[in-house]
Amino acid sequence: MDIKNVTVAGGGVLGSQIAFQSAYCGFNVTVWLRSEGSVGRAKPKFERLRTIYLNTLEAMKTNPQAYCRGLAPSPDMSVEEIDQLKARADAALNNITFTLSYEDAARDCDLVIEAIAENPEEKIAFYTELAKHLPEKTIIATNSSTMLPSAFAQYTGRPEKY
C-alpha cells in the first residue's frame, strides 16, 4: 500500500510531533481534534516544532554536532541542501489541516495514528465513531504507551488492520 494521506488524532505533545514529522516527510496530514479549544492549544505546538526544525537545520550549517537524523539524511550537507530542508519545514506547517470532523479526518485516509489521551472510554468513543467514516483501505495505529492495543481493536471496525 502506498501511504500518502495520514490522519493524526490528537494534538498534544506526541500527536503534534508525529503530525509535524509526517508532514515534514511529505505526507498529507490531517490532525483531528475534539474542540476549537484543542485546535487553539495545538497550533502553538506546531509553530514551536517548526522553529525547532528551522533552528536545528540552521545550526547544521556551521556545527556538525547539530546533525539530527530525523531532519537530514546526512551530516554532510551543503548550505543549499540545508536551505531546501528549511523550506520543507516551512511547507510542513502550511500543509497540515486541522479538523473537528470525523468525516474530514477519515476522507481518503491511508493511515490513522491515534495519539489521544490515555483514557479508555475516550479511545473507544473515538475508534467507534471514526470507524463509521473510514475507507476500507485505512490502517490504524496507536501511540498509546500505557494501554494494550488489543483492548481497542474490536472498536476500530477493522481489527485486522490495527
Rank of each mutant, 00 (worst) to 15 (best):
F27N: 07
F27M: 09
F27H: 12
F27P: 01
N28C: 06
N28P: 01
V29Y: 01
V31N: 00
V31Y: 03
W32R: 09
L33K: 02
L33P: 00
L33A: 07
R34W: 10
R34E: 15
S35F: 06
S35I: 04
E36S: 05
E36C: 00
G37P: 00
G37N: 14
G37T: 04
S38H: 05
S38W: 04
S38M: 03
V39S: 07
V39E: 10
V39C: 10
G40Y: 04
G40N: 12
G40K: 13
G40T: 03
A42H: 04
A42G: 11
P44A: 06
K45V: 05
F46I: 08
E47R: 10
R48E: 13
L49F: 13
R50S: 12
T51N: 13
T51A: 13
T51C: 05
T51I: 06
Y53F: 15
Y53H: 13
L54R: 14
N55T: 08
N55G: 13
N55W: 01
T56V: 15
L57M: 13
A59H: 14
A59F: 12
K61M: 08
K61N: 02
K61A: 12
K61I: 06
K61G: 10
K61H: 10
N63I: 06
N63K: 11
P64F: 01
Q65D: 15
Q65P: 07
Q65H: 15
A66Q: 11
Y67E: 14
C68H: 14
C68L: 12
R69Q: 11
R69A: 15
G70R: 13
G70E: 15
A72C: 14
A72L: 10
P73R: 09
M77Y: 14
M77V: 11
M77L: 15
S78F: 11
E81C: 13
E81P: 06
E81A: 15
D83Q: 09
Q84T: 00
R88Q: 15
R88A: 10
A89L: 03
A89D: 01
A89Y: 03
A89N: 06
D90N: 15
A91K: 11
A92N: 04
A92Y: 05
L93A: 05
L93W: 11
L93Q: 09
N94W: 03
N95I: 04
I96D: 02
T97S: 06
T97C: 03
T97M: 03
F98R: 02
F98E: 04
T99E: 02
L100F: 02
S101F: 03
S101Y: 00
Y102V: 06
Y102S: 01
E103Q: 06
E103P: 01
D104K: 06
A105L: 02
R107N: 05
R107L: 00
R107H: 04
R107Y: 06
D108E: 07
C109W: 04
C109V: 00
C109I: 02
C109R: 05
D110K: 00
D110W: 00
L111R: 00
L111A: 05
